[in-house]
Design a binder for these strands. Structure first.
Lengths: 139, 139
DNA sequence: GGTGCGCATGAGAATCATTCTCGCATGGTC
DNA sequence: GACCATGCGAGAATGATTCTCATGCGCACC
């Protein structure tokens, strides 16, 4: 833990557990917590250790194959998504997620940062709401 | 935990510890974690329990006097700020923060949500970067 | 097809932030 | 000045995530 940050790791080995995690995420369309995913895997018979789920998720995040979201109570939620830059519109009732890619926000963030002399800018945008289906069911 | 969510609390009592937390936050201009704040209070001689710091912070957040930010490693960070709606531009090196209030993003979020049939919309935007001072010091 | 190396796995312990418990102190009110 | 609810503090409890370490197994090579 002093210097080398393994530039491109070694081989990323294929394993039953990792494909199980990825497969499960492919079938779900909302953000799920690591604990949730672990429970779901157990349910469907794919016995996987909790630590392994965390490791698999981190590896996938590193690869850019997953997006992470931190719920207000501190739990991390993961979701399979396209590798290009985008943001999320999340239903706070059913968890359904829509990927949103919109140049205006990107430009806005860049402009705001530039105005204040900030460089090397990243941004983080999430929009929460109630989707049409849930709003209808609720009313 | 069944029904009553004390609508407007009772009396919010004044105490040495609460003012100490608020005073400290007034003097700092970046986001600080609860643990940090607790340590700082101890350092300056204001002996305050950790639980009390958390309670005070939550009360202040409820009052809208503080903003909360969740760092990627799951720690919550707090900062004194204006009560009106705004977002933050945060220096990832020194933690310096600039409040940004800009109508375009608000409109963007509302539009995106509307396009997908979402209602009752909230959004969460943070912009991270390196401020001019830190960029200069670093290069 | 067989062998070996090294990363991956898994169970449980460890860690860390946060919340809860409970008895005591004290602010604010009458 | 007394009373009662709310705040305090120390430490235990909780819950998510990470670490440890012995064993398992994917994959490259023969």
């Amino acid at each position: 833990m002093s210097a080398a940050e393994q530039p491109e790791g070694g081989v990323r080995r294929q394993s039953r557990q990792r494909s199980a995690v990825l497969t499960l995420l492919d079938e779900l369309d909302g953000f799920r917590s690591a604990q949730d995913l672990h429970a779901l895997l157990r349910d469907r018979g794919d016995s996987v250790g909790l630590a392994t789920v965390y490791r698999a998720l981190q590896a996938l995040v590193d690869d850019g194959q997953l997006d992470v979201l931190r719920s207000p109570d501190g739990e991390a939620a993961y979701r399979r998504c396209s590798p290009s830059h985008h943001h999320h519109l999340v239903c706070r009732t059913c968890g359904r997620t829509v990927e949103v890619a919109d140049p205006p926000v990107e430009r806005w963030a860049a402009r705001i940062a530039a105005e204040h002399g900030f460089v090397d800018v990243q941004h983080d945008v999430e929009v929460f709401g109630t989707c049409a289906a849930c709003a209808a069911a609720h009313g």
